[in-house]
Design a binder for these strands. Sequence first.
DNA 1: CAGTGGTCTAGACCACTCT
DNA 2: GAGTGGTCTAGACCACTGG
Lengths: 223, 223
Amino acid sequence: MPAIPRYYQAKTRLLDLVNELPDNTPFPPERELSDVFGMSRTTIRKAMDELVLEGRLVRGAGRQGTAVAPRKQVHQLSLDALVQDLAAREQVTVRTIGAQDVINVESVLVRRDEPVGVRSTYLRASRFPGFAERYDGTTPLRRFLSDAYGIRFGELCPWCTTALATPRVAGLLDVRPATPVLSVAWLDHDLRGAPVERSWVVLRGDRAHLTVQGLQLSAPARP
Amino acid sequence: MPAIPRYYQAKTRLLDLVNELPDNTPFPPERELSDVFGMSRTTIRKAMDELVLEGRLVRGAGRQGTAVAPRKQVHQLSLDALVQDLAAREQVTVRTIGAQDVINVESVLVRRDEPVGVRSTYLRASRFPGFAERYDGTTPLRRFLSDAYGIRFGELCPWCTTALATPRVAGLLDVRPATPVLSVAWLDHDLRGAPVERSWVVLRGDRAHLTVQGLQLSAPARP
DNA sequence: CAGTGGTCTAGACCACTCT
DNA sequence: GAGTGGTCTAGACCACTGG
């Protein structure tokens, strides 16, 4: 076996091709590439799979075929806006989870008619009586909790990592399951330190960048 | 073709198995699973590939075989520490890139003897004369620029997204190429707004979480 | 040496979409 | 109907590691 796998050689050649072609150009079918490159379709597909994950190719259903992905329209989403629930949302749903005393508010973040993320917040039902009836789904959640229940929020320490899209999230974001996504989560406390809400945002890595504004750098630890 | 692919059924069953077994338990070989499940090895592999990407299985070379991954030892890395270059580093290398007037400082971030990230900074050589000779590789970079060249830094707006590990980064992080990673980048300006350094950090999503402390939330936009 | 994961092949059938 | 991507099979050879 060569040190450089054949699928990686194929990927390199295909990447050159992608770079030369304008956006949305139809890409040669897998069987044709398999023929031209003298590799099995399986090997070609493995190469193309990575280009799709990297957002360079877009595969369509049926006879649409594969095409060169349009230049990433990357949307800047600020951590601030995500936490405060200020990002444009659609499909806001409020569910009560069984007898678990948990309310879940889920919304799809949309930019230019594209789903770019999912926001999900969990609340204790007993702490927010009548929430499901009172919440209109359009007011930013954090502000609503503040206005309707007098919550004052304390400090926040969000964390961020990568994950693979679950089938459910993949459906909402219009990506294939197991697509890498950016995951941001935080626990919100009130001024007494009691937890108020637990939130979780999943972003399409190829459509959204998370920006951090207002970062306070600690003072350099020097005399 | 069933609505639920066979590889996904396999993944579900294998996940149950993983959840039952203690950490580091040797996992059945692919050929055996293929036999037991009545699926081709290719299909079994596709299921296991995802479990590996999710950090639930670890594959070894040669006769080591696959094993249940130890509970994620997740290291918290603060954005603050990354920017200020305070995280523990090893293998710090300073290269000058051709005649491009660019200096690259690259280091591997280490936690408990595991590589968890790569930090890479680019500087204009002409702005920092003698940098390669003067920099010792241990002082936090930002502090060194401040001390040795009198740089004062202005505001910062880092951004964050997912990416696939390039072969080079994959080698440094001890993961397979195309593994999803967390990518954090920023452009550092001085007080006059002139760019000083461009930096880039890649983190293993399964080993490191990025935390954001000292986040300044904008005032609620209400009268 | 035997057994493992990593790669690769040459087929096959399906659901889907365009013409 | 024809052609696409999505899935699946049953083989094969290789590099590597353990006993």
